[in-house]
């Protein structure tokens, strides 16, 4: 143990945390509208990364990212329309199985299109070795990009769900679908919209984290597992909480590496997660009453 490295571990933890958080945000949107967890969320992240890398061979970075996000949004819409929209009254279990199926389908398709190699976008600023240093603490500029983009996304989403009509319509569908329909809200369109939004945010996450983590056809699932954990820890449906929970989990992991062998990292973080959930089953920042209204 050496206190000098406290801040370096903290920064490492923040790096882990922001990666988890930006993936977790996507889970919350579909949950907010449909009350289900989309297990294909990790695949949106993978698709965003893969498509942007493929496009970056032809167009500059911002254009490639924008196009990847738009394309993934379209894929999200197509998936919802093909697999989910026509279900009359889907049970939660059925939706979970469908989304797991979609995730396998997307992953295998990606394998056939891109093969199994690892890819990454270039660092948005600087290179693989550059770091912003404050004293003896170093952080990759890409981490700042991830934090910045997470912040912008969360703020944007809060404004969208709180202030705009479609956002409020989406929340209405989540609270009570039948009542929302009686008010003249097209619930089916709202679900499609939520898939489009979460696909877009997933894709954006895939683009910004790919220089750090690399992307290959099957990297969606491990990212989604951590993202899912964080979404639950924060309290489902709350994007701000997801970011906070992501940072908490990331920092916990990093400090556990500091004092224990790395192999115990997940044991420690998951034990703490379980403890928190025993005390607060609706998540750290979740609303117990709101959670009680949901099916899942």
């Amino acid at each position: 143990m050496n206190i000098d490295f406290f801040f370096q571990y903290l920064v490492a933890g923040i790096t882990y945390g922001t990666i988890y958080a930006i993936v977790a945000i996507g889970f919350n949107i579909i949950y907010n509208t449909t009350g289900i967890i989309n297990f294909a969320q990790g695949e949106f992240v993978m698709l965003g990364g893969m498509i942007s890398v493929a496009l970056h061979a032809f167009v500059p970075l911002p254009a490639a990212i924008l196009a990847a996000v738009i394309l993934t949004m379209m894929i999200g819409a197509i998936i919802e329309i093909l697999f989910i929209r026509w279900l009359a009254n889907p049970s939660v279990l059925r939706m979970i199985i469908i989304t797991i199926g979609i995730s396998i389908l997307v992953r295998e398709t990606a394998l056939h299109i891109w093969g199994a190699g690892v890819r990454a976008l270039p660092y948005f600023t600087g290179s693989e070795v550059s770091a912003i240093s404050v004293g003896d603490v170093h952080v990759s500029p890409q981490v700042l990009w991830v934090i910045g983009i997470s912040a912008v996304t969360v703020t944007g989403l809060n404004l969208f769900f709180g202030r705009t009509l479609p956002g409020r319509q989406m929340r209405a569908c989540a609270s009570n679908r039948n009542a929302a329909r009686l008010c003249g809200i097209n619930a089916k369109n709202m679900v499609t919209l939520s898939f489009v939004l979460s696909a877009g945010i997933g894709a954006l996450a895939g683009c910004v984290v790919s220089p750090i983590t690399y992307i290959q056809y099957d990297s969606g699932t491990p990212l989604a597992i951590k993202g899912f954990t964080v979404a639950i820890l924060g309290g489902l449906g709350n994007s701000m909480a997801a970011v906070a929970a992501g940072l908490i989990l990331g920092v916990l992991e990093s400090f556990s590496i500091w004092i224990m062998p790395t192999a115990y990292k997940d044991v420690i973080s998951i034990s703490i997660l379980l403890l928190i959930l025993f005390v607060r089953p609706s998540g750290l920042f979740g609303n117990k009453e709101a959670a009680g209204l949901k099916e899942f």
Binding site: W258, T262, D266
Partner: peptide
């Protein structure tokens, strides 16, 4: 140190080496 094969970032591990 042994890390998970799906590790997405290893900053903490290398910090340990630096320390």
């Amino acid at each position: 140190e042994v890390y998970d094969k799906a590790a997405s970032d290893l900053t903490a591990e290398v910090t340990k080496l630096k320390a």
